[in-house]
Amino acid sequence: MQDLATKFANLTIQSDFIFKKVMSRKRICKHLLEELLQAAADRNCGYQLSGGRKDA
Rank of each mutant, 00 (worst) to 15 (best):
Q2N: 11
Q2M: 05
Q2F: 11
Q2A: 05
D3V: 03
L4A: 10
A5G: 01
A5Q: 03
T6V: 05
K7W: 03
K7E: 01
A9F: 01
N10C: 00
L11S: 00
L11P: 01
L11R: 02
T12F: 02
T12N: 00
T12K: 03
I13D: 03
Q14W: 00
Q14P: 00
Q14A: 00
Q14G: 09
D16C: 01
D16Y: 05
D16W: 06
D16P: 08
D16F: 07
F17L: 07
F17E: 10
I18K: 03
I18Y: 01
I18T: 02
I18R: 01
I18F: 04
I18V: 09
F19M: 03
K20D: 08
K21T: 04
K21A: 05
M23G: 00
M23C: 02
M23T: 03
S24D: 14
R25H: 13
K26S: 15
K26G: 12
K26D: 15
C29K: 13
C29R: 13
K30M: 12
L33A: 12
E34T: 08
E35S: 09
L36H: 08
L36E: 07
L37A: 06
A39E: 14
A39L: 08
A40C: 11
A41N: 11
A41H: 12
D42L: 13
R43G: 05
N44K: 09
N44T: 07
N44D: 13
C45V: 11
C45H: 15
C45D: 15
C45E: 15
C45P: 02
Y47V: 07
Q48H: 14
Q48A: 14
L49G: 13
L49S: 09
S50W: 10
S50Y: 10
G51S: 08
G51N: 02
G51T: 05
G51R: 02
G52I: 06
R53Q: 12
K54Q: 14
D55W: 15
D55L: 14
A56K: 14
